[in-house]
Design a protein around this nucleic acid. Structure first.
Lengths: 261, 261
DNA sequence: GATACCGATTTGGGATACCAAGCTGGTATC
DNA sequence: GATACCAGCTTGGTATCCCAAATCGGTATC
């Protein structure tokens, strides 16, 4: 919206202050990565939110761990105001939750995972049907290319990301902002659990084949087939995911990850 | 959740205003109306969020109006910290949005309303099918009773609320928390527009008849019929709503309500 | 009269001080 | 040795204060 410029940000000015003397002022030492893709300076809140989200999704902070505002504050060099704003946002995403008075990284909740899959199925299938009804479905080729960009040498992180983006981008094609956001948010909530799932090569190949099959059906506008394939894919993924986590529950707990239900 | 509503809001108490150093601490003087249904004292953030939401949904603050943190602060007698927290939450609900630097009550967006209806259809139908598959569907009687509680003497506010709660409570029966929240949030976003819709008696009766028909199908477990009826109801409501607002756009603007797209 | 410029005011972003509730560890009592 | 109790620390909630950017008026210039 704003072409809003420049503005090297704000010179804080608390070089005195005993509390966080180790934190340099922003002006003199912009933290790496504090500008967004457009070069627009990101607010502290956005910084904290983004980095904390990445830490949580990347399991650098384990499910069930307690978070204190003061820890986040010192970890990211921001004051409590932006920290609190970021925590509030992450709470609405379901990544953290309040445990009476304190903040906790949301545990992996098996019952929740099952419910999310049902929710995903509803919104993804709806989005898919909209997409199939479009005149111009050429954008599926972009998604196909995205899938094909993964090969043996692709790091696991990339496979993980592309596997989620497949569903998110497919939903985006529908043009319905709400269906798109629903899918994106659901995938975000599933992300950590998918990292913890034990998946063999064969399962990955099967998932990729299913992705391709779905795209093929969309390409020719066969909404019913596409919907059937997508439903089966989502429910199958859910069952494998939940089974894997349930079987590995002890191991996960041993690694310090809270897994409930 | 709550049988909610009501709660005409809270007796503010900011006759003093400018400095609030004369305001005693929360603990020693809980503000009237600041306790939730359980008697648990509500935080200032929750107070501000709840009351501001009611003002926005009740059109006491019109779509498109600008909000300043200072205004909210003085209006509710809270300081900026809880005010900002409340604004952040309302932003994620879509009730307010940022306009570059300042806050704006979200305008009525016709394109958005159409998209929400599609989203609603997806999630409500999915929830309905889950409910139809339940062994015990006796809870539909409670919803039926809720519908029947409205008669000629019922104030319009109550009709409005029950009309929304029908869909929300129906979704709750599915037992899927995500479908439920999706429906609740979608209805919240639609709420203001529904207030502005010009509806005659006949349209209301028709909607009520459709509600009853849907419940009847659910009662006997006829998922396909129920789904068909619900879809038709939602899409029909959407068309009437959007048509009404489009026709009345000038009138709405004259009343100071921003209506876009 | 239109416009460009400049300063005062407003506004959101951030930092920090203070408070009350709750938790913790240690101590005293039985 | 177990338990009740209390002081001190931790933590989230809140109130303020400061800052820079944006906005708004008014004025001077053409």
């Amino acid at each position: 919206m704003n072409a809003s410029p420049v503005a090297v940000n704000a010179g804080l000015s608390n070089m005195i202050d005993k509390g966080r003397r180790d934190r340099p002022t922003l002006a003199s030492d912009p933290i790496a990565g504090t500008n967004d893709l457009n070069g627009t300076p990101m607010s502290q809140m956005q910084n904290v939110e983004k980095q904390l989200r990445e830490m949580i999704l990347g399991l650098e902070i384990g499910p069930g761990e307690r978070l204190t505002e003061r820890w986040v504050e010192s970890r990211f060099g921001a004051s409590r105001t932006p920290v609190r704003a970021a925590l509030l946002r992450l709470e609405t995403e379901g990544l953290i939750c309040r445990d009476s008075r304190s903040w906790t990284v949301s545990p992996i909740n098996l019952a929740e995972l099952e419910q999310i899959a049902v929710y995903r199925e509803a919104v993804e299938v709806a989005a898919l049907r909209l997409t199939c009804a479009l005149q111009d479905r050429s954008a599926v080729e972009i998604i196909e290319a995205m899938l094909d960009s993964c090969d043996d040498k692709t790091p696991r992180e990339e496979w993980h990301r592309v596997g989620m983006d497949f569903h998110i981008e497919l939903a985006r094609l529908s043009g319905n902002e709400f269906l798109f956001r629903a899918v994106r948010d659901a995938m975000t909530r599933l992300s950590r659990a998918r990292w913890l799932e034990v998946r063999d090569e064969a399962a990955l190949d099967r998932a990729w084949a299913q992705h391709h099959a779905i795209l093929s059906a969309v390409r020719v506008g066969d909404a019913n087939s596409a919907a059937r394939l997508l439903s089966a894919h989502i429910i199958g993924s859910r069952d494998r995911l939940v089974t894997s986590l349930r079987n590995d529950r002890r191991g996960l707990r041993a690694r310090g990850f809270a897994v409930v239900a």
